[in-house]
Simulated scan of single mutants.
Amino acid sequence: MRYSLLMHYPEMTEAELGEDVLAEGKAAFDAYAKSLDSAGVLVSAEVLQPVASATTLTLREGSRKIQDGPFADTKEQLGGTFVIDVPDLDAALDWAGKCPAAQYGVVEIRPSAVFFHDGQWQGAM
C-alpha cells in the first residue's frame, strides 16, 4: 500500500540554521532517502521550495482566485514528501519514525486512496 509521509516543520533560512546544521540535515535526509531506496519502498521524494514561493488557487462561483503564499497560515509548513509503498500502516510508521523531520517537526502518514501509474488510475475511487 502507498503512504505519503508529509513533513511539516518550522521553516528556517540557511542563515538561521547555520552551515553545520544545514550540512547535518542534508546528510541525514540523504541517508534516509537512500535507506528507503535500498529497501525497495521509495516511490518518490520531494523537498519543496520555501512557502514564500507558494501560490494557492481556488475556484468559487465560477471565478478563479489566486493567492500568494499557502492557504493556511501556520508556524509549521509542509516542507516535503516521501511516497513509500509498504505492506501496512505499521511499516509506514516504522519508516516515518526514522525520518529526520520527526525530530523537529511532524510527519503525517497518510495512505493513498488512488494514484496514477502507467497511464491509469490505481485503487478504488
Score class of each variant (00 low, 15 high):
P50L: 04
A23P: 00
G25N: 07
G25M: 05
V41R: 01
V86F: 02
L93H: 07
D68K: 15
V47P: 02
Y32I: 05
F115R: 06
E108H: 01
L5I: 01
H8L: 10
D94A: 08
E14Y: 12
W95G: 00
E16L: 09
S53M: 11
A92V: 03
L78N: 04
I66G: 14
A54P: 06
Y3C: 02
A92S: 03
T56W: 09
A113L: 14
Q122T: 13
S38G: 06
D30V: 06
D94F: 09
D68E: 14
D118V: 03
A31W: 01
D88L: 08
G62I: 13
S112L: 12
A96R: 00
L42K: 01
S53N: 13
E16W: 11
G40Y: 08
S38V: 11
W95V: 00
A15L: 10
Y104D: 03
R60V: 15
F71H: 13
A101T: 03
E46H: 10
A72R: 11
T56E: 06
T55A: 13
Y9A: 10
G18Q: 04
V86A: 04
P70T: 15
S63N: 15
I109C: 08
L89V: 10
F71S: 12
M12Q: 14
A15Y: 09
A33P: 00
A15R: 13
M1Q: 11
G97M: 01
A52Y: 06
E14L: 13
G105Q: 02
F82D: 00
G79V: 06
G62T: 13
I66M: 15
R64H: 15
T55F: 07
A124D: 14
S44N: 08
T81C: 09
F29T: 04
V106M: 08
A72K: 12
A91S: 12
Q67R: 15
Y3E: 02
V114F: 09
Q122I: 15
I66W: 07
L22I: 03
K34P: 01
E19S: 11
G105E: 01
L48Y: 02
E14R: 14
G62W: 14
S35W: 06
L36P: 00
E46I: 07
L57G: 09
A54V: 10
G40M: 07
M125Y: 13
H8F: 13
L89N: 03
G18K: 03
L6E: 06
L57P: 10
Y3Q: 04
L78Q: 04
E19C: 01
H8R: 05
E14F: 12
S38H: 11
L17W: 10
T81I: 13
A72T: 12
F29S: 05
G25Y: 01
D88G: 07
Q77C: 10
R110Y: 10
A27G: 04
Y9E: 05
D68C: 12
F71M: 13
S44Q: 05
T81A: 11
M125I: 12
D20F: 05
F82P: 00
A45D: 00
E16D: 09
A15M: 08
S44G: 09
G105D: 00
M1A: 11
D90P: 01
E76I: 01
Q122R: 13
G69D: 08
L89R: 10
D118H: 10
A28D: 05
E19R: 07
G18V: 02
S112R: 03
G119W: 12
D85Y: 04
G80K: 03
V106Q: 11
E14W: 10
K34G: 04
T55C: 12
E108M: 02
F82N: 01
P111T: 11
D68I: 09
W95C: 00
A72P: 07
A96S: 02
